[in-house]
Simulated scan of single mutants.
Amino acid sequence: MSINCRIRKPAYNSRHARLLVSVRCTSFFHRLHKYIIANSRVKVYFAHPYSPWERPTNENTNGLIRNYFPKGTDFNLLSKKNIFEVQNQINERPRKTLEYESPLNTVSRLYMNQNFI
């Protein structure tokens, strides 16, 4: 059995004080989401296909990535070091949705306080 699934990195939603995970997936997560919900504090959200307004943080992050890598960039030609540098810059950038805290600081703080999942 092959599984075609993309899991987005968790995003902390400070307004509701909980962790949100958005997934785009085949029936794999449709079968497992009840298990995930029952065994963690993670809320699973299934966005509708071709509905980017349902994934604003994902769309914003795609835009940030495009600032560094134009559409059509062949990532096979980039070094891992270059990709990690950009990843770190994006993760250290403050976000309005995180009350102007960086994703890295938010996740670190939650992990240290054990309020993570």
Rank of each mutant, 00 (worst) to 15 (best):
45 Y>W: 13
67 N>P: 00
71 K>L: 13
45 Y>R: 08
61 T>H: 01
62 N>S: 05
46 F>T: 11
64 L>Q: 07
31 R>N: 09
41 R>E: 09
46 F>Q: 11
62 N>F: 15
59 E>V: 15
57 T>S: 03
32 L>V: 10
68 Y>C: 01
37 I>C: 05
47 A>H: 15
61 T>I: 05
60 N>L: 09
62 N>G: 00
48 H>N: 03
47 A>R: 05
59 E>I: 14
53 W>C: 03
38 A>I: 05
42 V>W: 04
50 Y>K: 11
56 P>W: 02
56 P>H: 01
62 N>Q: 13
66 R>C: 04
60 N>W: 11
58 N>A: 09
48 H>Q: 02
71 K>R: 04
35 Y>K: 08
42 V>K: 08
66 R>Y: 07
43 K>H: 04
68 Y>G: 02
46 F>H: 13
65 I>D: 00
53 W>H: 06
42 V>Q: 10
53 W>S: 02
35 Y>C: 03
37 I>S: 12
57 T>Y: 02
35 Y>W: 02
50 Y>R: 09
45 Y>Q: 09
54 E>W: 01
65 I>N: 00
44 V>Y: 10
60 N>V: 14
67 N>V: 09
33 H>L: 11
44 V>W: 12
71 K>W: 13
64 L>Y: 03
34 K>R: 11
63 G>E: 13
30 H>G: 05
48 H>S: 06
70 P>W: 11
66 R>H: 15
63 G>D: 05
52 P>I: 13
32 L>E: 14
56 P>L: 12
41 R>G: 04
39 N>W: 07
70 P>G: 01
49 P>F: 14
42 V>T: 14
47 A>D: 08
52 P>G: 09
68 Y>P: 02
61 T>E: 00
44 V>I: 15
55 R>G: 01
31 R>L: 11
54 E>T: 13
50 Y>Q: 05
39 N>Y: 10
67 N>T: 12
56 P>V: 01
33 H>V: 10
48 H>C: 02
53 W>Y: 07
51 S>W: 11
63 G>R: 15
67 N>K: 06
50 Y>I: 07
69 F>Y: 15
61 T>L: 04
63 G>T: 10
54 E>D: 06
31 R>G: 03
47 A>F: 07
34 K>A: 11
38 A>L: 05
70 P>T: 12
57 T>A: 01
42 V>N: 06
60 N>G: 02
58 N>Q: 10
48 H>T: 10
61 T>C: 01
65 I>S: 00
33 H>Y: 14
63 G>L: 09
51 S>D: 09
33 H>K: 13
63 G>C: 06
56 P>E: 05
66 R>I: 07
60 N>A: 08
